[in-house]
Design a protein around this nucleic acid. Structure first.
Lengths: 131, 131
DNA sequence: GTGGCTGGTTTCCGATCGGATACCGCCCTA
DNA sequence: TAGGGCGGTATCCGATCGGAAACCAGCCAC
């Protein structure tokens, strides 16, 4: 099992480079932020405000919508720790962990063919410019 | 190489069941019709009007947009056979064939976990109904 | 010359997506 | 009593998505 937060490394605020071209990847899961949320949860549960850090410009609304979607699909679990302080933690379900694995395979294919993808797209952009 | 159309089996008009729940699959490629278009091209080049058949309700506009997108990304090639009759054929590029293979792997994962996906989603729908 | 097939384009329209901004209750600390 | 952090909601807005319907040129057969 994973250690209780304090023992886990905090999320790297720059784990998603703002100029990263990942929107060009042909595979998509959920909405715009969903794949990154899954990635953020791979080392254990995370709090709402913890997730906002590496996700740069995400607004609370967008992050909430993304989390609700993942929760409804059964990929993410939301747990309210009703202690004296407010504390909500999100974690991967086993199904969500499996999805992340499958997504990794898709990412791997993308990485392997990245140069071809870029070249083909540039050729396509110039070749179909007039239509 | 593939035989010249007349020798290839025509596309099954019902190859995409209208009640097929594939929109529930977590992986998406391109726009709404793109994965089905790729699938239609796996046995060789197809004509525009040939593609419309198994794609049930697709409008010419939507199919055109989808094909242009795939062409621009370098997954599909468009060839105009300027003979006496008008004839346009769409085919997979090597890159597109590779994408279809990777997509197959994602589909396989989805098929393997289909029951879990359905169960989890139903639980999620009832569990988060009030939020 | 009229109609039909092919492979589209154009216009319009409603639905959805995603961001900006403001606001909220609850709890803690100073 | 005021302010700050947490975990959100509510409202508005512009951009994009996707379908319906109309229209089009080129070529064919009747």
């Amino acid at each position: 099992m994973t250690e209780p937060e304090a023992e886990r490394a905090p999320l790297d605020p720059e784990m998603f480079d703002p100029v990263c071209p990942s929107p060009l990847a042909p595979f998509r899961v959920g909405d715009k932020w969903a794949p990154m949320v899954l990635r953020c949860l791979q080392d254990g549960p995370r709090r709402f405000s913890e997730l906002k850090v590496p996700l740069g410009g995400v607004t609370a609304k967008s992050l909430t919508r993304s989390l609700r979607g993942l929760e409804q699909a059964g990929f993410v679990a939301r747990e309210e720790h009703g202690g004296t302080e407010r504390r909500v933690e999100y974690s991967l379900t086993p199904l969500g962990r499996g999805l992340l694995g499958a997504l990794d395979a898709a990412c791997e294919w993308t990485r392997e063919h990245w140069d071809e993808l870029i070249d083909a797209q540039e050729a396509g952009l110039s070749g179909t410019a007039g239509r």
